[in-house]
Design a protein around this nucleic acid. Sequence first.
DNA 1: CCTACCGATCGGTAGG
DNA 2: CCTACCGATCGGTAGG
Lengths: 198, 198
Amino acid sequence: MGRIKTTNNQISRREIIIEKAATLFKEKGFKAASMREIADVVGVEAASLYNHIKSKNELLNIICFDVANRYTHKMEEVEASKLTTLAKVESLLRFHIDGMVNHFEEVYVSDREWKHLDNPYLSNMQNQRRTYRKRFAAIIEEGIKKKEVKKIDAATAVLIMLHAIGGIESWHRSTRKIIGKELEENMVTFLIDGLRKI
Amino acid sequence: MGRIKTTNNQISRREIIIEKAATLFKEKGFKAASMREIADVVGVEAASLYNHIKSKNELLNIICFDVANRYTHKMEEVEASKLTTLAKVESLLRFHIDGMVNHFEEVYVSDREWKHLDNPYLSNMQNQRRTYRKRFAAIIEEGIKKKEVKKIDAATAVLIMLHAIGGIESWHRSTRKIIGKELEENMVTFLIDGLRKI
DNA sequence: CCTACCGATCGGTAGG
DNA sequence: CCTACCGATCGGTAGG
């Protein structure tokens, strides 16, 4: 039991560090947040952080690729489903909104601070982002072919949708209140209506 | 003539510094860009920058409020016009797209790095941003009252529009090519269609 | 506009 | 997990 407890503590300590790092990276930006500040919030000395993680950049790697992997997993799920195009898109939109609500710090950091990744992670992330958008656009294009969706430029629609959702900085605060759910419904309606054939 | 020339040089030198700073702030973020890098690009020693500007933060102030003032000015112009609601919104959307195309670095920095402003500029900027969105939403709400616009949540529509346009990082590269103008038309169409009554 | 330099702070390591 | 530090770099100033 001593061993199990130790293992548990070590895992959760690492996760606490990542969590606090995400919050600080979100609030101040990756470069402006210091390891000493993270340590302060965690409640240890800065040097002690390095028993759990290798470097400041590793923290950013973990955060960014955790989010990116969730995106890829969701995309595979949606692609494999037998939903209509509009339902697929709605599922993806709600997934992204859910990400902003329930993993706000991580998603926010992944979206705005990934430029501070260093290679090979940087180019890896650029590829993953590009690929994700292409697969999203392909879903919309298939809908256009099947005449389920209005004839629009699929790539533009994807950019609008992702930025519209990812841009909201107040998801977090307005969440879990009626106003948050309302914002979600308004947004899904507005964006889905942009695709729907009139 | 010597005096005029000196004055001109001083003005343009300052403007060059601001321009180069905007480019670097955009590429690396405010905190990650150093005064020494800016000086390098300008072609002087870091210490010499301080003959033209007071501090690194002043550079950010200038960039952010230059953009904010353009926004306010445009909003006043649109409010005073006798255009229909849809035409007002389209005018604002094209204004924002034009900003991304012709003042990309400045607008990008103003939008993503304003959090690094220090008070009183920080709270001033927060107010300006809030006010701008409210005035934008008021235009849409007026359109709803006049039955020119679909019944939607105006605040949500504003957030979607501003983030959709502001999020595109490739405006600059794809600009001045057919693809850039196409992106603009696709975006305006998609977003305006979101307001139009069916 | 430059040289020379300052104090502060950074990410990270050694050693226990 | 801490103390004690390191070299590097930061924004900015003094003085010419």
